[in-house]
Design a binder for these strands. Structure first.
Lengths: 302, 302
DNA sequence: ACCTGAACACCGTTCAAGT
DNA sequence: ACCTGAACACCGTTCAAGT
């Protein structure tokens, strides 16, 4: 249960870094241990049952602690064999693991190095900087989902299935939305899924122009929705409340607003704080589909 | 509640401001909904020109290096007068200024303190931590826009005008989307605009349930779109390229993909990298409107 | 070729101590 | 009551070394 929270007071609570974009100059910032183990209900995330990409090393061994195995004597240079020990792939996989396990704020160069039993400076042989690492990590979030399998003749059914699967996939990945929303991804995994989306939209009869624009609309809307959803979830966790309590409190706040200035907010306080985000998502996607349908219908007559 | 536990360890006198506990961890932050004046005339938001609250010392000298004028002797305690010198409002305004001028990554506690001619530790009397500061800053991004003025009988026209205005507003604010997309905002400025949106949607004839859900859909979709747009823009900047060059390069990359595996991506490379994001936004909003229209139409007959 | 220690210039946050 | 210096435990990144 998510109830155990309240930032740990012994340790400095470091604010949320708002991420790490700056390629230069000032670093990103700190990590916030404010977030606990990510207990909020929902299907188990981590490595679960999702389909993997093609020939990936899969979940890989969890990075052995210390090389050499002996005493604490760390020597310079590299240890023995002339196998690289590190590769870009290994670094990236460790990043994925770290992100899934401890969240985005725990993904630091030093932390990642520790995950690999190595020092931070070593990583710079495999990634240009942290920003590039996060870009790669963002694309990597799509490694485990292949929308191609949802392609079918009934375009409405296909789009609905894709949207549902994508939402579920992202929600199951810690901080995925926060990571993705913060950068512009055009990596290989993303493209595979765009391809599937375009297949369906063109199959529905949309023009090239409309298909491309509709795909963009679907993607940004879905990301926007899931980002908001994942943020709300972590706001609940940060507040140390169960979802229901958090929402009830919010509803209470809304209802307490001056009714002359916010009549609709007050009147709809209940609806606005409805807990079932899956229903809201279905609503959103249904509206989008209906909107696209209008375009399909307009094209058909000819 | 994360708020009340963790009493200050050493000093009993160091209790945090009473209102902080009352306001609760959520978005709104420490100030309750009353919110001080904050003229927010909207127009010039740039740097020096922002509207001020009531009796503020105005823009104040940009933090003179040394007080007293003489040697580098910074003394403890506060200097002379017993006016507070800092208030929550002043801190927040400085944050807004810093964000607008130097971007989100420049908003650090130390940097903000420097902006105010003060040391970082002083800020903790006015904000609980950086995360809360950013929450307040996120809501503050909506201080300068009032969607109420776009309310009108023609709901389609109203929604279109609102969406356009909101997009333009956010795009004009450095890193606004990145800031907002990363947190769940329920502050006073946000609520005012939600109110306007709900007014229009209910006016269109939607049920309470549908109006609330449609509002949520509009907001998350729009944020998703603008976040992607602002990210792309900053990706261009980070790449040090002109927009056209950046997109041409991207189009080239897409066209170079294996056509057997990504036939649609390759075929639509041009459309997918179309530079006119305003057109894409209009497309997205038109689809959403059409989707909502289907709902309105379904409700009307009865 | 690959990894490291050490350093640099930053972070957020706490707290006893000044005025 | 309000602000500060100093400290703590972190950051990202560079670079001259070691092996």
């Amino acid at each position: 249960m998510p109830t155990d929270r309240t930032p740990p007071r012994g340790t400095p609570a470091h604010g949320r870094p708002a991420d790490a974009a700056a390629a230069h100059g000032t670093g990103g910032g700190a990590r916030s241990d404010g977030t606990p183990a990510h207990g909020s209900g929902r299907p188990a995330h981590g490595s679960g049952t999702t389909a993997h990409g093609p020939g990936r090393p899969a979940d890989a061994p969890p990075a052995e602690g210390v090389p050499g195995g002996g005493a604490g004597a760390r020597r310079r240079g590299r240890p023995r064999k002339d196998e690289p020990a590190l590769t870009e792939r290994v670094v990236l996989d460790a990043g994925v693991r770290l992100l899934a396990r401890d969240g985005l704020d725990a993904v630091t160069m030093r932390g990642l190095a520790a995950e690999l039993g190595v020092r931070a400076a070593s990583l710079y042989r495999y990634v240009r900087n942290k920003d590039e690492l996060l870009d790669a990590l963002a694309d990597e979030q799509f490694a485990g989902i292949d929308l191609t399998r949802y392609v079918q003749d009934d375009w409405r059914a296909a789009l609905t299935a894709m949207a549902t699967a994508l939402r579920r996939h992202l929600l199951a990945r810690r901080d995925a939305a926060r990571l993705i929303a913060g950068r512009f991804t055009t990596g290989p995994h993303s493209l595979r899924n765009i391809e599937a989306l375009l297949t369906v939209l063109r199959g529905a009869g949309l023009s090239d122009h409309d298909a491309a624009f509709a795909a963009y609309t679907c993607v940004t809307s879905l990301f926007g929705f899931v980002a908001a959803e994942q943020n709300r979830l972590s706001a609940e966790v940060a507040a140390g409340m169960a979802p229901r309590e958090y929402l009830d409190r919010l509803a209470g706040r809304l209802r307490a607003m001056p009714a002359d200035r916010y009549p609709n907010v007050v009147a709809l306080a209940g609806e606005l704080t409805a807990p079932d985000l899956a229903a809201r998502f279905d609503f959103a996607m249904a509206r989008l589909l209906a909107g696209i349908d209008a375009l399909v219908a307009a094209g058909e007559p000819r």
